[in-house]
Design a protein around this nucleic acid. Structure first.
Ligand SMILES: NC(=O)c1ccc[n+]([C@@H]2O[C@H](COP(=O)([O-])OP(=O)(O)OC[C@H]3O[C@@H](n4cnc5c(N)ncnc54)[C@H](O)[C@@H]3O)[C@@H](O)[C@H]2O)c1
Ligand SMILES: NC(=O)c1ccc[n+]([C@@H]2O[C@H](COP(=O)([O-])OP(=O)(O)OC[C@H]3O[C@@H](n4cnc5c(N)ncnc54)[C@H](O)[C@@H]3O)[C@@H](O)[C@H]2O)c1
Lengths: 219, 219
DNA sequence: AACCGCATGTGAATCTATTCACAAATGCTA
DNA sequence: TAGCATTTGTGAATAGATTCACATGCGGTT
């Protein structure tokens, strides 16, 4: 990685759109497109061509004027930017409703997120086999995370215990956390925390349906 | 509702923060707070006091200078704004990994989102009882949605069929859709579509961990 | 009933993100 | 190799969101 050293802050929205581009490029690749214009790319995710070009321009110039972007190559580049092809070791904590669903989801694997460990505190679950993975005892959390070189932790425990769990996760040196519990978790500045908040999306719909007039667009 | 008629566009971020305020107020209410300042409210969700006040000011003035906001009253007001206390009839389509998890989640109910119907196309699932709800046949989708006065539909089917399902959902007159499939679904302008995209969050973490320097904050 | 401290509500200022618009490049054709 | 049709890459302009900063008003106190 060429140390750019300059802190050209990339906005969150840009990163999120990069995910979208990546998804579209995967599809285009399957459809045997060689190249794609910012116009087509934009259309597929309901964005503007200028937005697409601007986003990509933060990271380099990947296109050819008059032609567009080479699909496979750009896909590779975005994977590189997002850090998708290095492969991540993921642990999941809380094998309940949502935790089980996540373990059974093969798409994550395909994107380089490998669920290596799953934890619970329920004696009936510990030791049992969940879609090929043995449930570990939460009491071994810190050592297990370290020994298995886990980099990302997914938290799917009840909201009431989420903060305690996260404190331990942070102690184990984890810097990336995806949280499903509906609480605002406190983590140090150097830990990245993302929240998956389904209630929020439902509430947004509720608002939109209740106030049809003064609502913007979608998603 | 006093017809404000003016299209004072409320931004998506404001609505999302309203959800956060609502959550905090619920907690404060349990903790027996009478009033809360924008400062405290902000601290609890890592925002600024000015942001809190500005957001609320779009909808009215709910506070008392020198005192703050009355917790229970403000909570009620936000519920009203978000349309949470009218109760929503929800249908879920696709009783697989993620669909099952959602059906078993009592918190939605508590927030006024009542899952009334669940659909699948798998003969082994149709007719079976899932946490108290009988799985309906997807072939009756349109009529069932209408008869049961469903207002919001949650889509949890494989990405490959999601667009077909959504087309039918739209035909049935549904105006609010929460989609879990990883595709950009096309819906008419008057239908609100929200996407729950877990891969995107993981990819954001991947980016953040790969580019520690030039990343903003969290969630 | 005058005063004080505190916290709201909100225009104005600032900061950030998106869109515009066009020069610069490229591929293709003749 | 000249000309044309495209489409990129990017400063500049615009739009939008957040923060600032302070006048205003309320509750409590003396
Ligand atoms: N199920 C959903 O659809 C859904 C939707 C949105 C958010 N959530 C959130 O996801 C979280 C999990 O929800 P769920 O429905 O899967 O709940 P759940 O009760 O089914 O699962 C929670 C799991 O965590 C385990 N657990 C409890 N305490 C633990 C501890 N200290 N250490 C390790 N494991 C522990 C439990 O044994 C259980 O297996 C909750 O915070 C919930 O708010 C769930
Ligand atoms: N499981 C996860 O953790 C997860 C995470 C992110 C996104 N998703 C997305 O959610 C969706 C569902 O994932 P899943 O893991 O639950 O898959 P799944 O295969 O377990 O469940 C899909 C369900 O949909 C049903 N179905 C298929 N075709 C149907 C049709 N035409 N009509 C009605 N029902 C139909 C199937 O019978 C099945 O019950 C997928 O689009 C997936 O990409 C899942």
């Amino acid at each position: 990685m060429i140390s750019e050293s300059k802190k050209k802050k990339i906005s969150e929205s840009t990163i999120r759109r990069l995910s979208l581009y990546y998804r579209v490029l995967s599809i285009l690749e399957k459809e045997n497109y060689e190249t794609v214009s910012s116009k087509e790319l934009a259309k597929r995710e309901k964005l503007t061509p200028a937005q697409v070009r601007k986003d990509l321009s933060f990271f380099g110039s990947f296109g050819t004027r008059g032609l567009g972007y080479p699909v496979s190559e750009l896909k590779k580049q975005i994977a590189e930017i997002l850090g998708l092809n290095r492969g991540w070791n993921v642990a999941l904590i809380g094998v309940g409703n949502i935790g089980s669903a996540l373990v059974g989801y093969k798409e994550f694997q395909r994107q380089g997120f490998n669920i290596k460990l799953i934890f619970d505190n329920d004696q009936r679950k510990i030791g049992s086999n969940h879609k090929g993975i043995i449930v570990s005892d939460i009491r071994n959390l810190e050592s297990d995370l370290k020994e298995n070189n886990i980099q990302i932790v997914v938290v799917a425990v009840p909201a009431t215990v989420a903060q305690y769990i996260v404190d331990d996760v942070v102690k184990a040196g984890i810097k990336g956390i995806l949280n499903f519990a509906s609480v605002n978790l406190k983590v140090p500045d150097d830990v990245f925390l993302r929240n998956e908040n389904m209630s929020m999306e439902l509430e947004y719909l509720s608002f939109a349906l209740s106030n049809l007039k003064d609502v913007k667009g979608e998603s």
